[in-house]
Write a protein that binds this DNA or RNA. Structure first.
Length: 298
DNA sequence: GACCAGGACCATT
DNA sequence: AATGGTCATGGT
């Protein structure tokens, strides 16, 4: 039993139908880790512990917090999940995915951290993305105003995610030291464009989905999939439907078993079949196939 | 010690 | 429009 973290401020966000663990561990975010029955992570410049309670989500900070709107936004606790699930197609694969992932949510992240993280995600397993992001934050993030106590909390969670302006001043070698390989020049170029104002991430909020996606795809290393992740996870474009290797496998095996379907046909299906909150549906399918127990176990 | 990962991009067919 | 190679790294 570890000693309880000294807590200067806490709040209970009342919410039902919310699976905190599934949500924080479903490949949307990369800085959250289970700790003492809850989860510890960093949002902006706040290190927070989140715990699933019967009445909702308990949030604890070790520094005083006057208002918690940033946390409500991040967790999207005001979203009525049932209303969204009601827009999903009523087919068997979707029903199975929803049944298996009750309470899974789509978070609302800060755009730069989300963009940078998913630039680093290309052909990396989620565990490795976490490692790269950890090194990046510990190496170049700002020290947070958190008490330097010994705990099981990893060191990198004592730092903010480095701003674009900070990364823009680094060298490619600095970034390669974080073991991000060929993604280093892509992240560096993106950071420099954001820092220089060539691309304004805040401006994307007001654009139609297609235009916002095209803007992001002007960045080297950002294709349709990574752009869709950012549009869905940071901007709330619920129609964005990122298709990675897992989702493609899910679509093929669940909807087109033993049938050869072209890439284009699959893409058209994904864009039309899942309704106005297709991005949520995608997250359910993703988490469903990734957590489904293999048949050679148990 | 292969195999593969929340891809993108470029060169061939 | 569809394949194939390449990029860097390390978990499983």
């Amino acid at each position: 039993m570890r000693a309880e973290t000294k807590c200067a401020s806490e709040i209970l966000l009342p919410v039902t139908d919310y699976d905190l663990a599934a949500t924080l561990d479903s490949g949307q975010v990369f800085r959250w880790r289970p700790d003492g029955g809850g989860w510890v992570g960093v949002i902006g410049r706040n290190r927070v512990r989140l715990t699933q309670e019967r009445e909702g989500i308990l949030a604890q900070s070790d520094v005083p917090v006057e208002q918690w709107d940033w946390l409500r936004t991040f967790l999207q606790t005001d979203v009525e999940l049932e209303r969204i699930l009601g827009t999903f197609p009523g087919d068997d694969p979707m029903n199975r995915a929803v049944a298996a992932c009750r309470g899974l949510r789509v978070l609302r992240q800060e755009p730069w951290e989300c963009l940078a993280s998913f630039i680093l995600s290309a052909t990396k397993q989620i565990v490795q993305i976490r490692q790269i992001v950890s090194r990046l934050c510990e190496g170049f993030g700002d020290r947070l105003a958190a008490e330097p106590q010994k705990s099981s909390i990893a060191n990198d969670l004592l730092y903010s995610f480095p701003a674009a302006e900070r990364i823009a001043g680094l060298t490619e070698a600095d970034l390669r030291n974080c073991r991000m390989g060929f993604r280093a020049p892509n992240l560096l170029a993106a950071a420099r464009q954001i820092a220089a104002g060539t691309l304004e991430l805040e401006r994307l909020r007001g654009l139609p989905y297609g235009e916002a996606q095209a803007e992001l795809m002007t960045l080297r290393g950002v294709g349709a999939k990574i752009a869709d992740c950012v549009l869905l996870f940071a901007y709330g474009f619920d129609s964005a439907f990122p298709v990675d290797v897992w989702v493609e496998r899910a679509l093929r095996t669940l909807y087109f078993p033993r049938r050869r379907v072209s890439e284009k046909h699959l893409r058209r299906f994904a864009a039309t079949h899942f309704g106005p909150h297709a991005g949520y549906a995608q997250q359910y399918l993703f988490h469903f196939v990734r957590t489904k127990p293999r048949k050679d176990e148990n």
